[in-house]
Simulated assay, not measured.
Amino acid sequence: MSSTPKPTPDAFTPKARLEEGGLRDVLGYQLAQASILTNLGFVRAVGKPTHLGQVEFTLLHLIKQNTAVTPSKLAQALSVSMPAITVWMGKLEERGLITRQRSHTDRRSRHFEVTADGEALVSQAMAAVLAEESQLLDQLSAAERAMLLELLRKVARQRTT
């Protein structure tokens, strides 16, 4: 009589203790499992205190880092539609976190700039999200954290559209 080896504890989902089987080797599944924690951490550290969603935080930070960025560049960077960018940017503008400016080189074009309030808020939010993620990754060494981020950047760089 042969017995089936008993799965090790890491063969199960973190919460419901369901056996993962082949999902253990699926990148998208593992990213989704990890994003559950990062999304909850973001809401706790940034979303509730600042009333910024993840996309709004990302847009605000990208605008801060990229002087005179256009809506089309932002849409392209995040793989979202122009109408979606318009809605998010409208919310940020209503809150006084960004302004729309006419381009000095092409009067038909507009770009965004972060206001002083926007810069203060995104700096505070970035510090909070980094602190939260540091706690989530505390079981990893500094080298493992750096490797994880670098590997994820390599995967993301495969995107061409």
Rank of each mutant, 00 (worst) to 15 (best):
T86I: 08
S109E: 14
M89N: 02
L130W: 06
A143C: 07
V122R: 01
T8W: 09
V87N: 12
V122L: 03
S35I: 06
R95E: 02
R159S: 10
A77D: 06
Q30P: 12
Q139G: 00
Q33E: 11
T67Q: 04
F42S: 06
P9C: 01
A128D: 08
V80A: 08
I63M: 05
E19Y: 15
S72R: 02
S103M: 07
E94P: 05
G22F: 13
T115N: 03
Q101G: 04
A146K: 13
A68H: 05
S103I: 13
R110Q: 10
L74V: 09
H111M: 02
T160Q: 05
E133M: 10
T58M: 12
P49H: 05
E150H: 07
W88T: 06
T161A: 11
I36H: 11
T70L: 01
L151N: 11
N39E: 09
R100K: 15
K48S: 06
Q158W: 11
A32L: 10
G21R: 07
A156M: 13
T58N: 04
V122M: 01
L149C: 03
S81W: 15
E56H: 13
G28M: 14
S103R: 13
T99C: 03
P7D: 03
E94G: 06
G41A: 10
L121F: 07
Q30C: 08
A125R: 03
Q54A: 13
P14S: 04
H51R: 14
R107W: 09
H104M: 13
P14L: 05
V114S: 04
S141P: 06
A142I: 15
Q124Y: 08
L130E: 00
L27F: 14
D25R: 12
K91S: 12
G21D: 03
R157W: 11
A120Q: 15
D25T: 14
G90V: 11
V69D: 00
L148D: 01
A156P: 08
S141R: 14
Q54V: 06
E93D: 07
R107F: 05
T58V: 05
Q158M: 11
A77G: 04
F112V: 07
D117C: 11
Q124H: 10
F12I: 06
H111R: 04
Q65Y: 01
R159A: 13
A142D: 12
V69Y: 00
L23A: 10
S134Q: 13
A142G: 10
T4L: 15
S123N: 00
A16C: 03
K6S: 15
L92W: 08
I36D: 10
V129Y: 02
N39H: 14
L152T: 09
L31I: 15
S103Y: 09
L149R: 06
E94L: 11
A125D: 02
R100V: 03
Y29W: 15
A131Y: 03
D138N: 05
R95M: 03
E132R: 10
V80Q: 12
A128Q: 14
A116C: 02
A11G: 01
E19I: 08
I36M: 12
K15I: 05
D106S: 10
R159N: 15
Q124T: 02
H104N: 07
L137S: 00
A32V: 09
A120H: 09
A120Y: 10
K73F: 00
H104W: 08
R102C: 08
A125W: 05
G53L: 12
I85P: 02
Q54I: 09
